[in-house]
Design a protein around this nucleic acid. Structure first.
Lengths: 193, 193
DNA sequence: TGCAGAAGTTACAGACCGGTAACACCCTAG
DNA sequence: CTAGGGTGTTACCGGTCTGTAACTTCTGCA
């Protein structure tokens, strides 16, 4: 499937990349380690030589996904250096683009829903990573000069989270279609205060 | 466990009630039919005499849950007959109450995330039920006299959906803690227009 | 070239899953 | 009292799951 690019990477990286993709598409409980290793062009033993367990692999996948997300944030700063308000608008546009390009939502949120056991080792990691994202959005809102930065950031967070899950239950023509309008309206109304 | 009240109900009803509860708490893929029948005080054969398959049971559970949700809506009309704006505020309060009382979110959204196969029979039902809820909220907003009723209803929908999933990933102290403030602020800002 | 470590292969263990067959039971309606 | 339908019980099927053992093959490096 995804041979060309990552076929010559090391087995561990191929497994990590493939697992991220398959967990995202089919859910964590919807894909087994055999399927992952086969799609990654390797085998189960090699997976268990690099990862303690499936749970460990799940955690590493979440960290890797969060890492990619952080790179997107860095791109905002690179594109609009110092202009925090422009970066906030770029965040809205990027979120909408990702909504349109992919209907499987946020891996961390999906994992939290699938892994309902409250003591699952991945839960701690999910919370940490989500809190980091929240802090980053709060900082961006604050530095953009809006009043009540925390409230705006939290509102935008919930809107995006809701849009991502709404995409999966009612589809792209549902409430999530209005995400950009909602987010821009919110930012505007917080600025005038 | 939940003997006293429903122990003397008919097996089909006990299974349906127990399955709703267990699917809600542990997720659909997190509980097997054996566990359901045991908790319902019956056995697997009886389950398969009343339901074609686990998928069929899932669908019936979702319908039953939606039915309970509809009853909550009826209670708003009963409590504030004719006063649609009061009903809208009651909806916000009720949503917040349910957020505080339970951290496992919306069964339909969770099911949509867990059942990632796009052709899963439950997906159609989930979409139908979610669209019905959306229509009802749009009507309530319109009858409450706010401008852009659809946009307000969709925004409130996404906020609530986001709050329910945020509860599960970051916990009750995360962005979802501000749900009431956000929702009330939104309603106010839509009214003045 | 030779060697060590990484990677592949095969087979398996033990558990759980959804779903079915065959049969015994009980309770109620006639 | 009896017949029959709903229910309970046990055993089983084939499949899938995570995880491991033992062995062979490949590869990179000195």
């Amino acid at each position: 499937m995804a041979d060309g690019t990552a076929e010559r990477a090391r087995p561990r990286d191929r497994i990590l990349e493939t697992a991220q993709d398959m967990f995202h598409k089919h859910g964590i409980k919807g894909v087994g380690v055999d399927a992952i290793t086969e799609a990654a062009g390797t085998n189960k033993m090699t997976l268990y030589r690099h990862f303690e367990s499936k749970d460990d692999l799940i955690i590493e996948c979440l960290r890797a996904t969060a890492c990619k997300g952080a790179a997107i944030w860095d791109a905002f700063e690179a594109e609009y250096p110092g202009d925090k308000l422009a970066q906030l608008h770029a965040w809205v546009r990027k979120a909408a683009d990702m909504l349109n390009a992919d209907s499987r939502g946020c891996d961390m949120a999906n994992a939290a829903i699938e892994l309902s056991e409250t003591d699952h080792p991945a839960r701690r990691v999910i919370k940490e990573l989500k809190e980091a994202q929240r802090d980053r959005l709060v900082s961006l809102c604050r530095d953009a000069g809006v009043g009540q930065a925390e409230l705006l950031a939290d509102t935008l967070s919930l809107l995006l989270e809701g849009a991502r899950v709404s995409m999966q239950s009612v589809g792209a023509e549902g409430p999530s279609a209005q995400f950009v309008r909602m987010a821009e309206g919110l930012i505007a109304s917080f600025r005038v205060r």
